[in-house]
Amino acid sequence: MFKVGSLRKRQFIGGIAGVIIGFSVFYFLTLESAGEYVSIGPMNTGHQELSCVACHADARGNLMQQIQSNISYAVGSREEGVDFGTEDVTVDNCLQCHDRPNDRHPNYRFSEPRFKEAVKKIDARTCITCHSEHHEERVSVTSIDYCINCHQDLVVENDPLDISHKDLITKEEWFTCIQCHDFHGNHKYEVPTKLKDTIPMKVIQAYFAGGEDPFGTDKKYIGLSQSEWLEQLNNK
């Protein structure tokens, strides 16, 4: 019979152990309950209850098919590659829960050519520009001076503000509109008419970090919860 050397025996046992450990790790990490270990960071405000699959849907095909398709794409025998593991998260994922008819700044509008320059400064075509996920906050954009990219020529007739918008713009005494105006327009909120009543920047920053909502809690539309979202998908 064959004579098995001790080195080969150790290699064999090591190989088997490696396969078992590999499969166990793979199995554990793909469990729904292992989400917190796989996640790249804690969820943003309002998203804490979501499970991974709410945004990260399984990609089409099985693992082997995905490998084969991407190799084919790499060697040029296929027109397009495929997502590996899970599908890329796009603005459509966000809109499945957050789409509302009254959005003042819907993403799609910024696809128009006339916003080309503004989009170079702040890409409002996608939600993650301002709401990057897994940062345990509400708004992740670093500076809130983005309004000026489109509203630099603003003219307000019968201006209700005690110091007119025109004066503020001429004297360059404005930095953002957010201290008075809610970007998405989803709050039932009385806009202040006196400059002294505007929301202090510190409060805005705390709100962006996940703190109390200075525009109030009375909202016109509430984003869907995971169960509502699933129900909506089932009804389609």
Binding site: R60, N62, Q65, Q68, E79, V82
Partner: peptide
């Protein structure tokens, strides 16, 4: 063989 035999993800276009 095992890669090829499982087939790729169908191309949508």
């Amino acid at each position: 063989i095992s890669l090829i035999s499982c087939g790729g993800v169908p191309e949508e276009n």
